[in-house]
Amino acid sequence: MQRTTMDLWVGFFVMAGIGALLLLALKIGNLGTYSAADSYTLVGSFENIGGLKVRAPIKSAGVVVGRVTDIQLNTETFDAAVTMNIDSRYKFPQDTFASILTSGLLGEQYIGLAAGGDEAFLKSGDKIMKTNSALVLEDMIGRFLFNKASEGNDEKK
């Protein structure tokens, strides 16, 4: 069997194809930026998660430290049980505060972790005790209207 120029072109083609697949994975996709290879899981229960979704980022001081991997309804307490995958480079104290925040006015929702001052760190499978639910706009407007209405009643008296 002899080498032909056709082989050269096919070689180019296959290389370009594999290169394109790699570019898709590393440059366009997020395979290079965050890998779940070394991570541990934490669980948090929230009264209301609003629009939080699986794969939402978990940030601490604005830095992405992990992702939400699972959201389930706990049928005993009727809270949302959120499983989080945290990069094992980052350790958090046991009194860390987890709250559901929104990036921007209309942006996606994410979990913000605010570290406490405890000496002991959270281990894999631990539950985050201090949580803060998502702000639901309808609830806020409802409360605002209710307050306004009661103020109006006070003035009439």
Binding site: L21, L24, A25, K27, I28, G29, N30, L31, T33, P57
Partner: peptide, 19 residues
């Protein structure tokens, strides 16, 4: 341009499904 793209596109969900 690049960072929003990389944040929004998931390798397994978007790219593998496309392949």
């Amino acid at each position: 341009f690049w960072s929003q793209m990389q944040n929004a596109i998931d390798f397994r969900y978007d790219i593998v499904n496309g392949i």
